[in-house]
Computed example of a mutant assay.
Amino acid sequence: MVTFVNLKDFEEFSNYTASIDPKGPPVLMYFSGSKNAEGRSWCPDCVEAEPVVKAFLDELKRNVIFAYVDVGDRDYWKDKACPFRTDSRTKLLVIPTIIKWKGVQRLEGSQCTKRDLLQMLFEEDD
């Protein structure tokens, strides 16, 4: 029931967000540092959060779109002008960050490793 989308940079992210159907399933964006050949991010907090998020998604019984967004390598991310930091739609301060698209809810950093917080983020809107 979870549809996965992989977006590799800011341009892909921007193009994807422009095509999101507002009447479609909820879209959650997971922003993480780029991965090496072994599939491991340079960001230690992202490495810690990913298996928790993945296990949660494996058990999720809801129709959602989960977009993995690669924010780039460490130097690109650390640059204060990084578009993921400056864009009004994201305003990222840390990674990992999960945001509910077109909503105000977000989990940042170590919050992404807490199953109860993931549960609240993924709950249906009333």
Rank of each mutant, 00 (worst) to 15 (best):
D75I: 07
E124Q: 13
I20L: 06
G24P: 11
R40F: 11
E12A: 15
T3S: 15
T86C: 10
Y16T: 10
P96S: 10
Y68D: 06
T113Y: 01
N63L: 05
Q111G: 02
F4Q: 14
P26I: 10
W101G: 02
T17D: 00
P44F: 06
G24R: 12
K54P: 00
A49N: 00
K114S: 11
E48W: 02
M29E: 07
V2N: 12
V27H: 08
R85F: 04
N63V: 00
I65T: 15
W101D: 02
M29I: 12
D45Q: 08
M1A: 14
S32G: 03
A55N: 09
F13E: 02
V5P: 08
Y68P: 00
T97G: 04
Q105S: 14
Y68C: 08
K78S: 02
P22M: 07
Y76L: 06
G24Y: 11
L107C: 08
F10E: 01
K100L: 13
S41M: 07
N6K: 15
L7V: 10
V2G: 06
S88M: 10
E11K: 15
I65Y: 01
L60W: 05
G33Q: 03
I65E: 10
Y30T: 05
A37C: 05
K35V: 13
A67L: 07
M120G: 10
D73S: 09
K102M: 13
A18T: 13
K54H: 12
A37Y: 06
L57T: 05
G72M: 08
R89P: 00
C112E: 04
K91W: 05
T86I: 09
E48V: 03
I98W: 05
R62L: 09
A81S: 13
I95N: 02
D58S: 12
I20A: 10
D75S: 10
Y30S: 04
W77E: 01
G103L: 08
E124N: 13
K80I: 09
P51E: 08
V27Q: 01
L92E: 03
Q119T: 14
K54V: 11
L121M: 13
K78W: 04
T90N: 02
D45V: 01
C43Y: 02
Y76M: 04
P25V: 06
F13P: 02
S110H: 09
R85W: 03
L118N: 08
Q119M: 09
K102P: 03
L121K: 03
D21S: 13
A81V: 06
E50P: 00
L93G: 14
E124V: 14
T113K: 08
K78P: 00
K54M: 10
L60V: 05
R115I: 14
I99R: 07
V69H: 04
L121E: 04
P83I: 12
I98L: 15
F10I: 15
